[in-house]
Design a protein around this nucleic acid. Structure first.
Lengths: 188, 188
DNA sequence: CCCGGCGGAGAACGATCGTTCTCTGCCGAT
DNA sequence: ATCGGCAGAGAACGATCGTTCTCCGCCGGG
């Protein structure tokens, strides 16, 4: 019906949407097949198991996250602005009606204990984000110790916004980031 | 065999341990029964459903968390020290070999979309923590806007430590909290 | 036109889950 | 000692899951 690449993308995108909305374990492969319009046989020829599909979905989400972050910082003209753009990006995300927290954190909490492949994919995404922040901190001329602090603010904002159901955490975290940036870059 | 209160506690504690270690959905009621030494019939006479047991476990964890936080801040002699004691408490927790992140965040990610009772119990715990921090911030004479910033740091430290598998996030968050406290209380 | 194989749809399978039911033995009351 | 009822152990049940298999229609090559 459709070529392999298109089918793969259709499955990944459908699974991504369902997994994010309902949790990974709550979504059966039948639901993925229906949403993607790809037969189970074909799905299992593209992914050896549900676990492998989950990992593929997480990797797909990593690239979506990375490009979203990149385009959010496009208008920024300084490293400091690019750092704060992270929190504006979060704010816009938190306001989306189907926001349900960070898919990586959610999936890690759900399967991190039983599937090392899933745990590795989650860890890899977080490591990438930490590196992204570290690069910006370095560009801003701030000490390297600032980077994990900003990353922790971003992580905390995501879980707080998800549980509270409000986007407030984004600008609260942004304000804290501004303070930390001010202090870190104001030395002599 | 044993009185109702003891049986209830045995079930809750056994379920708590299993749910935290493996995730809620990965643990069957049979495993709870074996670990608690309480028959399924009795369990279902104490809790109407697994969902209700999960909520009871979360409430139990809330009291454990509250008292752990209280005892961690016992040696502190000022509001500022009590705030920083939160992060020392987290540090000790992250170093426990079976640390697997915040049970509330994990459970919310797993079931928050499907069970409003679970989502409510999680939200309630987070609200209590926010209030605790807000009280300390007020005692420290800092502006109220500092409280959610500190809470976000604590949340972010928990997920970061869980995913990274290292306790580093505790002292990174603590350092950020110190900076924010310094700035917030140095005015005037 | 016929035939072989490939892909889709979905039935089937075995496992597991939450929940209930049955059976058995024990205990106190008479 | 006898009886009634409660509690424990675990079998049973219906649903659902991940995964595989079967069947059927379609297509290109002779």
């Amino acid at each position: 019906m459709i070529d392999e690449k298109t089918a793969r993308e259709a499955v990944i995108e459908a699974a991504d949407e369902l997994f994010y909305a309902h949790g990974v374990q709550a979504v059966g492969m039948d639901a993925v097949r229906t949403a993607a319009g790809v037969s189970l046989k074909r799905i299992y020829s593209l992914f050896a198991s549900k676990d492998e599909l989950i990992v593929a979905v997480l990797r797909h989400r990593t690239t979506v996250w990375d490009s979203g972050l990149a385009s959010a910082s496009e208008r920024a003209t300084s490293a400091r602005e690019r750092i704060l753009a992270i929190f504006d990006f979060l704010d816009a995300w938190f306001r989306e009606p189907d926001f349900r927290g960070c898919a990586f954190i959610n999936t890690h909490g759900e399967l991190g204990a039983s599937s090392t492949a899933v745990a590795d994919a989650v860890r890899e995404q977080k490591r990438g984000f930490q590196e992204y922040v570290a690069r910006l901190v370095s560009d801003a001329g701030a000490p390297a110790t600032l980077a994990p602090q900003l990353a922790i603010l971003a992580e905390g904002a995501q879980t707080t916004a998800a549980i509270a159901g409000t986007p407030d955490a984004a600008h609260q975290a942004r304000a804290a980031a501004e303070t930390l940036l001010d202090v870190a870059t104001a030395r002599g």
